[in-house]
Amino acid sequence: PREAYIVTIEKGKPGQTVTWYQLRADHPKPDSLISEHPTAQEAMDAKKRYED
């Protein structure tokens, strides 16, 4: 089974940042970016789909 994890990042100019959620996995390479999402819920949904 595949495993993934969610990383929170800040995008934008200082003082005007927006939080994004990255879905990452250690396949095919360590810390590979799988997808980016504007909400934590979307990231969790993507994580479930990826791991299923």
Rank of each mutant, 00 (worst) to 15 (best):
P1Q: 12
P1E: 11
R2I: 11
E3N: 14
E3D: 10
A4F: 14
Y5D: 01
Y5I: 06
Y5P: 00
I6K: 00
I6V: 08
I6H: 00
I6F: 03
V7L: 06
V7T: 09
V7P: 00
V7K: 08
T8D: 04
T8M: 14
T8P: 14
I9K: 05
I9G: 02
K11F: 07
K11D: 03
K11T: 06
K11E: 05
K11M: 07
G12I: 05
G12A: 04
G12N: 04
G12L: 04
G12Y: 05
K13I: 14
K13F: 12
K13W: 12
K13S: 15
P14H: 10
G15A: 05
Q16L: 10
Q16P: 09
T17R: 10
V18M: 10
V18H: 10
V18S: 10
W20E: 04
Y21P: 03
Y21R: 00
Q22S: 03
Q22T: 03
Q22I: 04
Q22D: 01
L23T: 02
L23V: 13
L23H: 00
R24Q: 03
R24W: 15
R24Y: 15
A25H: 05
A25Q: 05
A25F: 04
D26Y: 08
D26G: 11
D26N: 15
H27L: 08
P28L: 12
P28C: 08
P28G: 07
P28F: 07
P28T: 06
K29G: 09
K29N: 11
K29Y: 15
P30R: 10
P30Y: 09
P30M: 09
D31A: 13
D31T: 05
D31H: 13
S32D: 04
S32Q: 09
S32T: 15
L33P: 04
L33M: 06
L33Y: 05
L33R: 03
I34A: 01
I34N: 01
I34D: 00
I34T: 01
I34H: 03
S35D: 01
S35F: 01
E36N: 04
E36R: 01
E36T: 07
H37D: 00
H37E: 01
P38N: 07
P38K: 13
P38Y: 07
T39P: 00
T39I: 03
T39V: 04
Q41R: 10
A43C: 06
M44L: 14
A46E: 04
A46I: 01
A46Y: 04
A46W: 03
K47Y: 05
K48Q: 12
K48D: 07
R49G: 05
R49K: 12
Y50C: 03
Y50Q: 02
Y50M: 05
Y50L: 07
E51C: 07
D52Y: 12
D52K: 13
D52R: 14
D52L: 14
